[in-house]
Design a protein around this nucleic acid. Sequence first.
DNA 1: GTCTATACACTGATAGAC
DNA 2: GTCTATCAGTGTATAGAC
Lengths: 207, 207
Amino acid sequence: MDNQQKDTEIKILDAAKEVFQQKGMTGARMQEIADKAGINKSLLHYYYRSKEKLFEKVFNMAVSIFIPKMLEIMLSEKPLFEKLEFFINNYIDLLTKHPYIPGFVINELNRNPQFLLNIFEKNVQIKEKKLFERVDVQIQEEVKKGILNPIDTRHLITNVIALVVFPMVARPIIQGVMFENDKKQYDSFLKERKAFVLSFVINSIKV
Amino acid sequence: MDNQQKDTEIKILDAAKEVFQQKGMTGARMQEIADKAGINKSLLHYYYRSKEKLFEKVFNMAVSIFIPKMLEIMLSEKPLFEKLEFFINNYIDLLTKHPYIPGFVINELNRNPQFLLNIFEKNVQIKEKKLFERVDVQIQEEVKKGILNPIDTRHLITNVIALVVFPMVARPIIQGVMFENDKKQYDSFLKERKAFVLSFVINSIKV
DNA sequence: GTCTATACACTGATAGAC
DNA sequence: GTCTATCAGTGTATAGAC
C-alpha cells in the first residue's frame, strides 16, 4: 500500500465519517462523500465495494473510539467512587471531541438493532466475558462494607451513562429551550457537568 | 369531510407514523406507506402534497403527545418532590406506550436541529413564556426554605429527563448488553425505574 | 376520492479506457 | 489507481381517466 493509496483511503474515510454521521446511512449520498473526498464516485466502489460496506467501516471506527477507555476504567482496580470520576470526566471529554457519534449510533440503533450489538460483543464480551459481573461484584462488596447504600448495579450503570450521554444526544433541544440556543453557554454547561454529575451520583448512593 | 375520507386519512397517518418512526424521514418510502395503508401511492400525494409535508404532520403528532402532560405537571402548584414523582411516573408510562418516539425525535434532531425547536416554541413558549423561570423560582425557594441543597435548575432538569428518556432511546444496546436481550426482563426493569429514578434524584438533592 | 400510467431525477453500482 | 460513461433500478411526484 503506497502513500497515494493511503492518502485516498484516509480522505474517503474522513469524508464518509462526516456525511454518514450527519445524515445517517439512508440520508447519505455516495456522490456527496466523493465530492467531499475530492475524488470520483467510482473510486468509492473501488475501495469499498458498496455503500453498506463503507458505512460499516465508519460505524465500527466510531464505536471503537469509545470502547477501549470504557474497558480500561471498568477493569481497573480503583474503588467505585474513583471509577465514577474517571468515567464521567473521560467520557464527557471524549463526547465533546466527537459530539456527533452518540446520535449517529442511536440513529443506526433504530434502523438495525442487532448491528451494534454484534460489534459490541465482538469488542467487549470476548475480551472480558464477565465485565458486568465484575462491576456488580465490586459494587455489592462496597455495599457490604457500608460504603454504599444497597443499589441495583444495572440501574446505576444505566443512570451514569444516561447522565453523561443524553446531554450530547439531545443537545439541540436542550440548548434551544434552556440556553436560548447559545452554543458557548452550552459548552460551559457541559464542562460544569463533570463535577455536577459526579456529585449528583455520589450523593445519591453514598451512605 | 365524509367518513370514507376520514378513514383514509387515518389509515395514511397510522401507516406513515409506523414507517417514519422506524426508518426516519430519509429511510422511509412512500410506496411502503401506501402499501401499509392499503392504498395507492398517488393517494398519498392527494392528501399530503409531498413526503416532507406528510412527515411534518407525523412528527408534529409525535411531539404533541408529550407536551400537554409536561406543561400540566410543570405548571401545577405541587411541591417539587411531588412534581418529580408525577413527571417520572407519567413519562415512563407515556414512553412505554410510545417507545419509538424518542429515537424518532432524536434522529430528526440530527437531520434538522431547527425543526423541533420551532414546534416546541410554538407549543410551549407561547403558552407559557416563563416556563423555565417558574420552575427555577420554585426550586430556589425550596432551597431557601432548607428543603433542598443548593442546586442548578438546568442541570437538575437535564438529569431528570436524561434518566427517564435515555433508557428508552438506548434500549437495544442496554437490553442486549445487560439483559441478554430479554425483552420481558427489560420491561420490568423499566417499571422498576419509576421508583428507582425518583429516589435516586431525591436522595441526591434533599438536605 | 381513487385508480393507472407515466414523467423525470437521482441513486448505487459497473464496464472499460488510460 | 483513477477517470468517463452509462446502466438498471427506484424515488417522488404528476396527469388524466373514472
